[in-house]
Amino acid sequence: MTSLYDEVQAAPGEGVPTRRVTIKVNGDDRTVDVEPRLLLAHLLRQGLKLTGTHTGCDTSNCGACTILFDGRPIKSCTMLAVQADGHSLETVEGLASASELHPIQEGFKQEHGLHCGFCTPGMMLAAKALLDKNDNPTEDEVRWALSGNLCRCTGYQNIVKSVLWAAEKMRAESK
């Protein structure tokens, strides 16, 4: 059981009302007491120590905090942790298996889809949401799907190549 107040304190103060929520995170049920104002991105990072989810802009612009919520991409800095009660989340930590990278991660490695890496978790989950719906996207469709995620290093070129690489690999694997 983890108790959380907010990003600056580990536990709620005396008398602060909390709610108990159960959230499936990367396949595991996690039960935590949260104060309503705790943001989902902060629960993941501070509470559950899943620091792969990054917070960049704090204003729903940059997409670094993108995770999958019941399979659809959301910006986790713009959802309250209490709203995730009973829902299923996937973060970047859920992509790789114990021994193998996910094809999307492999694609980012093969095609040099990152420089500093800050935007990468959000990029990869936005890409996963796309590839789950469309296993053979065009370059335009990849650019469109990633248009809510900002990268300040790469100029996007190699990110797009990485996702196309992953799509090809995933198609080959599913045959």
Binding site: S60, G63, T66, F69, R72, P73, I74, K75, T78, M79, A126, W144, A145, S147, G148, N149
Partner: peptide, 9 residues
Amino acid sequence: VADPIVRTR
């Protein structure tokens, strides 16, 4: 409207 991720919510 906004961007594809905002549009999911």
